[in-house]
């Protein structure tokens, strides 16, 4: 504890430093308030309003009630959860397997494999989405390849069948993000004490046992971090759906973000209801973040 004298002596200097310190962060406070917090409040107010375009009036909880009777919203929500529950675990599992295999210093061509698997992460979402749309077209290369090796005897309707179209979106996102997540695990693995694996080997643990009982527990924090990031990303999925399937066939691949976009800019604009739908994403993200903090808190 500083004595009262010390505090008195320090006060002017600290006040001065404090003033300058606030100066450094002022622009950021203003910017984030204008472009994040203020719009959030606006969206909340909008979610209680309805009407076309600029003529909005308060309707209480009508928009929220409408959510429950809106089949398109139900589709968008269901689709988003299907993407989440299948894509995120599959991608994380692949990323983990790649990182463990590539962490072996005796492996040849490590640099090549690592760069190749990471490469999809440098593409823009729109660019790779358009490429995937053509790859998975009825007369696209994927069907040609599958026909040639006789796995199928007629072209699959990747983009026009409700189930296959969801599958195509999942394949696309997994292609784009697996290498990205792998890099996080690789860098975490580099900090893992090699002697733990030595000890496990001496005790007769198989590679699979080492993976499940050493690697995964050690990487738990980073796995958690990447799954939350991926989950939040998937909840906001837009670019791929818009450019690969435009939400179709029917609404089979529609995501929540794309529904919000359609409500605001494609159909007769209903900003109020669109804001209500957007608060569903906010709600889901907040819940997931709370879960993250809880689980992350548990490990300390």
């Amino acid at each position: 504890m500083a004595s009262i004298n010390d505090q008195a002596k320090w006060k002017p200097r600290r006040l001065h430093a404090g003033f300058i310190g606030w100066g450094f962060i002022l622009l950021s406070i203003i910017g984030i308030s204008i472009f994040y917090f203020y719009p959030m409040v606006q969206a909340l107010i909008l979610s209680f309003q309805s009407g076309m375009g600029a003529s909005l009036e308060f309707v209480g909880f009508d928009n929220y009630i409408r959510l429950f009777n809106d089949p398109t919203f139900t589709s968008a929500l269901t689709n988003t959860f299907i993407y989440l529950l299948i894509q995120v675990p599959v991608m994380i599992l692949f990323a983990l397997i790649f990182s463990v295999l590539l962490n072996d210093p005796t492996l040849k061509f490590r640099g090549f494999f690592r760069t190749a698997i990471f490469l999809p992460a440098v593409t823009s979402l729109v660019a790779y989405a358009v490429v995937f749309k053509y790859l998975f077209a009825a007369d696209g290369l994927v069907n040609r390849f599958l026909l040639n090796i006789n796995i199928i005897d007629q072209p699959l309707q990747w983009l026009n069948d409700p189930t296959l179209a969801k599958f195509t979106i999942i394949i696309a996102i997994t292609w784009r993000w697996t290498g990205y997540n792998m890099i996080f695990y690789l860098s975490a693995l580099q900090n893992v004490d090699k002697s733990m694996y030595e000890a496990a080997r001496i005790d007769g643990a198989s590679a699979l046992q080492q993976f499940f009982f050493i690697t995964i527990p050690l990487l738990k924090p980073i796995i958690l971090f990447t799954s939350i990031m991926s989950t939040i990303g998937t909840l906001q999925l837009f670019d791929e759906v818009m450019n690969i399937t435009s939400g179709g066939p029917g609404n089979a691949t529609l995501s929540i973000s794309m529904y919000i976009y359609n409500l605001s800019f494609e159909y007769t604009p209903d900003f109020g209801y669109a804001a209500t739908v957007s608060y569903v994403i906010v709600f889901l993200v907040v819940i997931l973040s709370i879960i993250q903090f809880k689980v992350a808190g548990d490990r300390d």
């Binding site: 950021s28 406070i29 984030i32 472009f35 994040y36 917090f37 203020y38 719009p39 959030m40 606006q42 969206a43 909008l46 939040i232 909840l235 906001q236 837009f238 929540i256 973000s257 919000i260 976009y261 605001s264 900003f271 669109a274 804001a275 957007s278 608060y279 994403i281 906010v282 993200v285 907040v286 973040s289």
Partner: peptide, 19 residues
């Protein structure tokens, strides 16, 4: 300020557009 990282863009897109 960190809380703003949790804000999904779709949620602020409409108010920003109106702004």
């Amino acid at each position: 300020l960190l809380l703003s990282m949790m804000i999904p863009f779709a949620a602020i897109m409409i108010p920003l557009y109106r702004f």
